[in-house]
């Protein structure tokens, strides 16, 4: 079997705000009834993170759970653990109406790190990123420039961005250009 390779093979655009590809990341999309106790406990069991509220992402180290829509959760686990995590979910939700699918290699993960990373994101997304409305733990699906993306804040200076693998290059270059443009000083 061929080796898994991430979309941008760890590309980095260094600067005051650094744009860095996150490399291989296990991503599982889980669709089903999010109010179901078994689904909630299965999510917690594979990541160790608390079940997220609407519009939130919860983290446990590099594992995370993110609220994608009223019937969809994104599960982040190490790339090598993806199959085992899906097997665990399948076992826990046997007999339920749900879908758990490995989408790790369909997507790319990009980090935006630095003091004005908030402004870099705000240049590309039609989202109010003011510190009073968007904080670590908040999760948002929107567009970046011309492509669909989702992002959340890992900490005060770091955004994690997920996009489709096919537009990883566009997203990376857009973010790098926005970072190179410097701070706006709006926030």
């Amino acid at each position: 079997m061929s080796n898994a390779v991430s979309a941008l093979q760890g590309a980095v655009a260094p600067g005051e705000v650094t744009v860095r590809e996150g490399g291989l990341q296990g991503m599982i999309t889980l669709r089903g009834d999010l109010s179901h106790a078994k689904l909630k406990s299965a999510c917690k069991a594979v990541t160790g993170a608390a079940f997220p509220a609407v519009g939130q992402a919860t983290m446990n180290g590099d594992n995370a759970l993110a609220w994608m829509s009223p019937d969809e959760i994104l599960i982040l686990v190490p790339h090598t653990d993806t199959a085992a995590a899906i097997a665990k979910i399948d076992k826990a939700l046997k007999g339920q109406h749900y879908l758990a699918e490995n989408l790790s290699d369909a997507r790319a993960l990009i980090f935006v790190e630095g003091t004005y990373s908030r402004e870099v994101m705000a240049k590309l997304a039609p989202v109010d990123l003011h510190p009073s409305t968007f904080q670590p733990g908040d999760f948002r699906r929107t567009r970046l420039g011309q492509v669909a993306a989702a992002f959340w804040m890992k900490d005060d200076d770091t955004f994690a961005v997920i996009c489709f693998r096919s537009v990883a290059d566009y997203t990376f270059k857009s973010l790098a250009a926005a970072a190179k443009g410097g701070a706006v000083g709006h926030f």
């Binding site: 609407v54 519009g55 829509s69 009223p70 039609p126 989202v127 109010d128 948002r140 699906r141 929107t142």
Partner: peptide, 11 residues
Amino acid sequence: PYCGVNADETD
């Protein structure tokens, strides 16, 4: 009404 976010027209 599902996400609770104020979505711009382009979203």
